[in-house]
């Protein structure tokens, strides 16, 4: 069970049940739709960007605990960040969920993302954890639909 509790940490269960920044975003400047055809997860991400900085990010849709928690944590973390900073955070996150905590030398940089440290033990769930991030990158790059397949 220890790997399971690594995956489903309290923070993840909490964010999965009560996602933050959930619901439509008034005055969004960009949005994107994320699909995981494997499990039918569907996420709509809206952002408000001004002068290259993410002022706000919110999401709606259906998904598993991992994908909802990831979207919930991510939408909180990216507020006030520039597109370049978001991209750097994504790279850290991606290294973490594919390679585990050992894959990233700077644990400090992980911050709140560290709760996703158990995902790498579950290769089939990496896409769940990454969906929100891929969708956010699409929104920031102006690509309306992204798919994990």
């Amino acid at each position: 069970m220890s790997e399971l509790t690594d995956l489903y940490q309290e923070v993840i269960l909490d964010h999965g049940k009560k996602p933050r920044n959930f619901g439509p975003l008034e005055g969004a400047t960009a949005s994107a739709e994320g699909l995981n055809p494997l499990c039918g997860d569907h996420l709509i991400l809206q952002v408000k960007v001004a002068d290259g900085t993410v002022l706000e990010a919110r999401f709606t849709g259906t998904g598993c605990a991992i994908s909802r928690a990831s979207a919930s944590v991510m939408t909180g973390l990216v507020k006030g960040k520039t597109a370049a900073e978001v991209e750097a955070m994504f790279q850290v996150f991606h290294a973490l969920v594919t390679g585990g905590p050992g894959a990233h030398p700077d644990l400090e940089a992980l911050g709140k993302l560290a709760v996703f440290g158990g995902v790498h033990e579950f290769p089939t769930r990496v896409k769940c954890a990454s969906l929100a991030w891929h969708t956010l990158r699409s929104a920031l790059q102006g690509t309306p639909i992204t798919s994990t397949e």
Partner: peptide, 28 residues
């Protein structure tokens, strides 16, 4: 509980089930 979470958890008990739309999205 999302079926995908369920399938991951029961898999760790050795139980193989399917979660998803089962290639039958109109039914879903």
């Amino acid at each position: 509980i999302h079926p995908h979470d369920l399938a991951t958890i029961v898999d760790r008990q050795g139980v193989a089930i399917r979660a998803g739309h089962h290639c039958a999205q109109p039914i879903m």
